[in-house]
Lab assay of single mutants.
Amino acid sequence: SEEELEEFAKEVLRRGITIIVNGIRITEVEIFVKVLREILEKR
Rank of each mutant, 00 (worst) to 15 (best):
E38Y: 15
E30D: 09
E6I: 15
N22G: 07
L40S: 02
R43W: 15
V33H: 01
V12E: 00
E30C: 12
V12W: 11
E38N: 09
G16F: 15
K10W: 09
I26Y: 04
R25T: 09
K42G: 10
R15C: 10
V33S: 04
L40N: 02
V12H: 02
E6S: 06
E41L: 14
F32I: 06
V35E: 01
R25K: 09
L36A: 00
K42V: 06
S1T: 11
E3L: 13
V12S: 02
E30A: 14
I31F: 09
S1L: 14
S1I: 12
V21E: 00
R15V: 03
R14A: 09
E2V: 12
E7G: 05
R37G: 01
R37H: 04
I39F: 14
R43M: 14
I26T: 04
I19G: 00
R43C: 15
A9Y: 06
F32C: 00
E41A: 14
E2P: 12
E6R: 15
I17S: 05
N22H: 07
E41K: 12
I24A: 04
S1D: 07
V35A: 06
K42A: 11
R25D: 06
E28W: 11
S1H: 09
T18F: 13
V35M: 12
T27R: 06
V12N: 00
E11Y: 06
F8Y: 09
E4K: 12
E41I: 11
L36K: 01
E28R: 08
I17C: 14
V35W: 15
T27E: 05
N22T: 05
I26E: 02
L40R: 04
V35L: 13
I39D: 01
V29A: 06
G16Y: 15
E28S: 15
V21W: 15
F32Y: 05
A9C: 14
G23P: 03
I17M: 12
G23F: 14
K34P: 00
V12I: 12
E41Q: 13
L13N: 00
E7M: 10
L5A: 02
T18G: 05
E2Y: 15
I26W: 05
I19F: 07
T27D: 06
R15F: 08
V21H: 08
R14S: 09
K10G: 03
F8N: 01
G23N: 07
E28L: 11
G23W: 15
F32P: 00
I20E: 06
V35H: 05
L13Y: 05
I19E: 00
I17P: 03
K34G: 03
L13C: 01
K42D: 07
I24C: 11
K34V: 04
I31M: 11
K42P: 04
S1F: 14
S1M: 13
E2T: 11
N22D: 07
E28F: 07
R37E: 01
I19D: 00
E2G: 08
K34C: 15
L36E: 01
E38D: 10
R37C: 04
E30N: 09
S1Q: 07
R25C: 06
T18E: 12
R37L: 13
E38Q: 10
I17T: 07
R37K: 12
K42N: 10
E2F: 15
E38I: 12
I26A: 02
E7R: 13
R25E: 08
F8R: 03
L5Y: 05
G23H: 05
E6P: 03
L13I: 08
E41W: 11
R25N: 08
I39L: 13
R15N: 05
E11G: 08
E4A: 12
R37Y: 04
I17L: 12
S1A: 09
L40H: 03
E11V: 07
E28I: 06
I31A: 14
I24M: 09
I24Y: 08
E28M: 07
I20K: 06
K42I: 10
E11H: 08
E6L: 15
L40I: 08
R25W: 09
V33G: 01
L13G: 00
F8S: 01
R14K: 09
R14F: 05
E30V: 11
G16N: 07
L40Q: 03
R15P: 02
S1W: 15
E4T: 11
E7P: 01
E6A: 12
E3Y: 14
L13P: 00
I31Y: 07
K34F: 11
L13H: 01
L13D: 00
I17K: 07
E4P: 05
L13M: 07
R43G: 06
T27C: 08
K10C: 13
N22M: 11
S1C: 13
L5I: 06
L5T: 01
R15Y: 07
T18N: 07
V12Y: 08
I24G: 02
I26S: 04
T18M: 13
R14G: 07
E3V: 10
V12T: 06
E41S: 13
V33A: 02
L40T: 03
I20D: 02
R25P: 11
L13K: 00
V29Y: 10
I24F: 10
V21N: 02
R15H: 04
V35P: 00
K10Q: 06
V35R: 05
G16H: 12
E6K: 12
V35D: 00
E11I: 10
E6H: 13
L36I: 07
I24S: 04
N22C: 11
L36T: 02
E41N: 14
R14N: 06
T27P: 05
E28P: 03
F32T: 01
R15A: 05
K42H: 10
F32E: 00
A9Q: 02
I24E: 06
K34T: 05
R14C: 02
V29H: 04
I26L: 06
F8A: 02
A9N: 01
G16C: 15
K42W: 11
K10R: 15
K34Y: 06
L13Q: 00
L5W: 10
E38A: 12
S1V: 10
E7F: 08
V12P: 00
I20A: 04
I19M: 03
V35Y: 14
R43D: 05
E38K: 12
L13T: 00
T27V: 11
L5C: 14
L40V: 03
T27L: 09
L36F: 05
E38G: 07
I26D: 03
E28A: 11
I20V: 08
I24D: 03
I39C: 13
V12R: 03
N22Y: 10
E2D: 13
V33W: 10
E38V: 10
I39S: 03
I26K: 02
G16R: 07
T18D: 06
K34W: 13
G16Q: 07
E3T: 12
R37W: 10
E2M: 14
I31S: 10
F32D: 00
G23Q: 04
V33Y: 04
I26M: 05
T18C: 10
A9R: 03
E3I: 10
N22E: 04
I31E: 14
I24R: 06
R25Y: 09
R37P: 00
E28K: 08
E4L: 13
I39N: 01
E4N: 08
I17N: 05
I20W: 09
T18V: 14
E4V: 10
T18S: 09
E30Y: 12
K34M: 13
E11Q: 12
G16D: 03
G23V: 08
V29P: 06
L36H: 01
F32R: 01
A9S: 03
A9K: 03
A9H: 02
K10V: 08
R43V: 11
F8W: 15
R15Q: 05
E28D: 13
F32Q: 00
V29E: 02
R15E: 02
I39M: 10
E3N: 12
G23M: 11
I26F: 04
E41Y: 11
E38H: 12
E2K: 12
T27M: 07
L40M: 08
G23Y: 14
L5R: 01
L40D: 00
E2L: 15
E7N: 11
K34E: 04
V29S: 06
E38S: 09
T18A: 12
E30F: 13
F8K: 00
L40F: 12
E11N: 10
F8Q: 01
E3D: 11
K34L: 10
E6T: 13
T27S: 11
V21R: 04
R25G: 03
V12M: 14
I31W: 11
G16L: 15
I20S: 05
K10F: 07
V33R: 06
I39A: 05
K10T: 05
R43L: 15
I20H: 06
I20F: 08
E28H: 06
E30Q: 09
N22F: 10
N22A: 06
T27Y: 14
I39Q: 04
E7T: 09
V35K: 04
L13V: 01
E28Y: 10
L36P: 01
I31N: 06
T27K: 05
G23A: 11
R14L: 06
L13S: 01
K10Y: 08
L36N: 00
E30T: 09
I39Y: 12
K10L: 10
L36M: 07
F8H: 02
I39H: 05
I19N: 00
V35Q: 02
T27H: 08
R37I: 07
E11M: 12
R43Y: 14
I17H: 09
L40Y: 08
S1E: 06
R14V: 02
E28T: 14
E11S: 12
